[in-house]
Simulated scan of single mutants.
Amino acid sequence: MGWYKAGKIAVTNGSKAITGNGTDFVTNVKPGFAFLGPDFQLYEIDTVVSATSATLATAYRGVTAAAADYGIFQTQGIIADLSAQVAALINNYGNIAQQFPDALNAISAAQNSAGAAQATAGAKYGKGNILGTVGQTGGAPTGAIIERGSNANGEYVRFADGTQMCTKLHLAVGDTAAFQSLPLAAAFVGNTVGVSLSFETGPNVGAAVDWYAFAATVSAHYTGGVAYLLYRGASMPVNGYVHVLAVGRWF
């Protein structure tokens, strides 16, 4: 704030009163401001009474004057008071202010955690790995959602929940006297497999499917399979195509 010197003032020797004309002490002057009188001496403003009236902290020592020029300016005392008030505000509300960085840090940490969780979920279930190699640890899926493959023993589909399906088109010979081994493309676990056979041409529909009988005699080199018996009428072709569908679990 610069000097305030609007209007004119009147002062009396030995008096603390300042009377203004065309002044606005209420808006522009505060207790503690410095007053430069017509005698070119500095005094301290004690109180502001009205827009045209103020008092000094000590009596005016100069010659009585009317319609005189003057000057009023802010002093360091006001700045010190303001500093004290600011210090009080910091003391009263500093703890609250301190909580804002903590809150921002917590928000940032939550965002990072959410981003990591989303990345982890994306790594497990993103469109880039819906198809791939399935896996599991302790019954929890660790790989892709669906795995599809094939080999000399047919085709298979594995799902992340443990379900597995094997299919095969097999050229069979009718009138088998004993169960015939038919390996499949992928291994099942335990007694979890259900098998169905259907015939394209050839043998009569008199097939028997016995997974358990076959599994009991399976050798280590087998990946899994079924055993079957075929019967045919005298006029039926000897050979026929058998469609095999096995459904069970891979873990």
Results as ranks from 00 to 15, higher is better:
115 G>Y: 10
19 T>I: 15
146 I>P: 00
77 G>V: 14
128 G>T: 12
157 V>D: 02
173 V>P: 05
130 I>F: 13
133 T>K: 09
160 A>F: 03
224 G>M: 07
89 L>T: 14
164 Q>C: 04
88 A>C: 00
167 T>N: 05
63 V>L: 07
163 T>F: 02
135 G>I: 01
106 A>Q: 11
165 M>N: 06
74 Q>E: 15
126 G>K: 02
183 P>K: 02
182 L>G: 04
199 F>A: 15
206 G>T: 13
28 N>V: 06
96 I>Y: 15
196 S>V: 14
211 W>K: 10
16 K>I: 08
171 L>N: 14
71 G>V: 01
48 V>H: 06
134 V>R: 02
154 G>W: 03
27 T>F: 07
65 A>F: 04
239 N>Q: 15
122 G>M: 10
53 S>D: 10
115 G>N: 13
127 K>D: 15
176 T>W: 02
52 T>M: 13
38 P>K: 00
227 A>P: 03
34 A>Y: 10
140 A>V: 13
245 L>E: 15
6 A>P: 00
233 G>T: 09
61 R>T: 15
233 G>R: 13
234 A>H: 10
45 I>H: 03
149 G>C: 07
103 A>L: 12
45 I>R: 04
120 T>N: 14
47 T>P: 05
43 Y>S: 00
136 Q>E: 13
41 Q>L: 07
80 A>S: 14
54 A>L: 07
111 Q>R: 14
188 F>R: 03
199 F>N: 04
54 A>H: 04
26 V>I: 12
181 S>E: 10
3 W>M: 15
60 Y>I: 05
42 L>M: 13
142 T>K: 01
66 A>N: 14
144 A>Y: 05
134 V>N: 04
103 A>W: 01
144 A>L: 07
176 T>Q: 00
6 A>N: 07
27 T>M: 10
141 P>V: 03
17 A>E: 12
229 L>P: 05
20 G>R: 08
41 Q>F: 03
70 Y>C: 02
55 T>V: 09
79 I>F: 13
204 N>W: 09
215 A>I: 00
1 M>N: 06
220 A>K: 07
171 L>Y: 01
144 A>D: 00
33 F>P: 05
90 I>S: 14
247 V>T: 13
29 V>F: 02
248 G>V: 07
74 Q>L: 14
167 T>Y: 10
157 V>S: 06
111 Q>P: 06
127 K>V: 14
22 G>E: 00
212 Y>Q: 15
230 L>F: 01
234 A>V: 15
160 A>R: 04
69 D>Y: 03
20 G>D: 07
160 A>M: 09
114 A>Y: 13
228 Y>M: 06
51 A>I: 00
84 A>E: 11
110 A>S: 09
